[in-house]
Amino acid sequence: MAYFIVQILPYIAVTIFGLGLLFRLVRWAGARLLGTSHEITLAPFPQSPFQAGWVFLREIAFFRNVFFFDPSLWVGAWPMHMALFMVLGGHAVGFYFTGHQFVYIGMSPELSEYMSNLLGSVFGLVLLLGLIYLLVRKVSLVKTRQVSNPSDYLHLIFLIAIVTVGDIMRYFPQYGMHYEEVYEYFKALILLQPVPEFVFHNWFFITHMLLVQCLMIYFPFSKLLHLFGMFAMRWIENRVHIDPEPGLPGVDVAAARARGTGLPSAGGTA
């Protein structure tokens, strides 16, 4: 079982994840949109690509709409997502450089590893709290209960499970794995070699791996793809649109007023 999870399933999960993403994106791309149908630009229409880019940026980096139109959602959603990006990035960077990534900006290896641990601990906790907040919100507000399907709660619960196991490994080092060990594990996986023996003894790690791989398998078939959906939707809506110049043909207002158009003495129209 453990062997399957850490040695075989990763290849299956990555394949399904990749093909699933491709499937969804091709499906979206297959639907025609502009030019042959209509423009559904949303106001205020950007006047330059720079302005359009700004709309994308402020929504992605700051969740501006959420902030203005539902602040109590923002309080959970924004920290949760930012922590999520940090944690994802942290996994990649931390394991690749075995915690020594900050050496490149001038820290000593010890300090770098300390920083890496600190950031991981902080964002791991923010992520967990954010997710719990969103789950509580989802079950306690009438409107969110009215819009949610069972799967919408499950997504949150599932992420909470993953993060909880992850945080346990982080906060209780005796259950965790060291950077070098994870590095070796992934190296073996990537080189298609048998994974090192020590992985089989850490059930927290195995559980974490199992959950993450389940997530990867269903991710492409779920709403979690809003990450791409957002770009695709805004690509249609936040577009440059420039109006034709105002000013009417054959019109000279000064001359018309001098002639007195409309005034009874001048008689009638132009």
């Binding site: 709409n65 819009v147 949610s148 793809l225 959906g229 695709a232």
Partner: peptide
Amino acid sequence: ESCVKCGLCA
């Protein structure tokens, strides 16, 4: 396909 059911629109 992309709605997260956040309920903000309500």
